[in-house]
Amino acid sequence: MWMYEKKLQYPVNIKNPDPALAKVIISQLGGPDGELGASLRYLNQRYSAPSREVQAMLTDIGTEELAHMEMISAILYQLTRGLSMKEIKESGFDTYFVDHTTGIYPVAASGVPFSADYFQSKGDPITDLNEDMAAEQKARTTYDNILRLTDDPDVRDPIKFLREREIVHYQRFGECLRIVTDMLDSKNFYAFNPAFDKK
C-alpha cells in the first residue's frame, strides 16, 4: 500500500507563468517516456521479478516516479496560473485549453493522450530490465531537450534534478540486471525465462 506525504521530493517554485513551455513539459507527464509511464512500468513489472532485491528496486523506483509525476504536475500547474485569454491564444496553449482548461491531464507534447502502449510488462526479468534501462535513458534525453528549450532558472532547477534521477535509476537497474544474470547459467542467459520456466 501507499501513503501520501504532503511535500514535493524537490522544490518547485516558478515566478513567471509560461503556457507555451507547459505545453512542452507536459510530455514528461503523459508522453512516451514520461513519469506516469515510468511509474506504471515498474510497479506492474515487479511481480515477476525473480529476486527480493529486484522486487524492492522496482517497488522503490516505481514509487519515486509517482513523486516525479507530482513534481512535473506542480511545474505545469505553476506555469499555467492566472493566464489571460490573450496569453492563452497567443502562446498556442488554446489547443490544450479547449479540452482541459488549466486542469492537469496526461498527454504528450503532441497532444496524444497517455497510453499503456508506452510500456511493457513482459514477464521476463531480463527483457523487462533492459526496457527499464532504455526507458531511463530516453527520459534523460527528453529532459536534456527540455533544458535546451528554456532559460528560466525556476524551471531548469527542478528539471535538472529529475534528469539526474534518470541517471541514478539507470545505474540501479543495471545492477539489477547483473543480479538476475548472476543467478543464471553464464553460457546462455536466454536459455529460459527465470520468471516462468522451471529449471
Binding site: 521530493q9 523506483i61 540501479r172 539489477c176
Partner: peptide
C-alpha cells in the same frame, strides 16, 4: 529524505 531515498535504492542492490 533525499539522502534516505538514495541510500534506499543503493541498499536494494547492496
Amino acid at each position: 529524505c533525499f539522502a534516505l531515498a538514495e541510500a534506499n535504492l543503493y541498499l536494494d542492490s547492496h
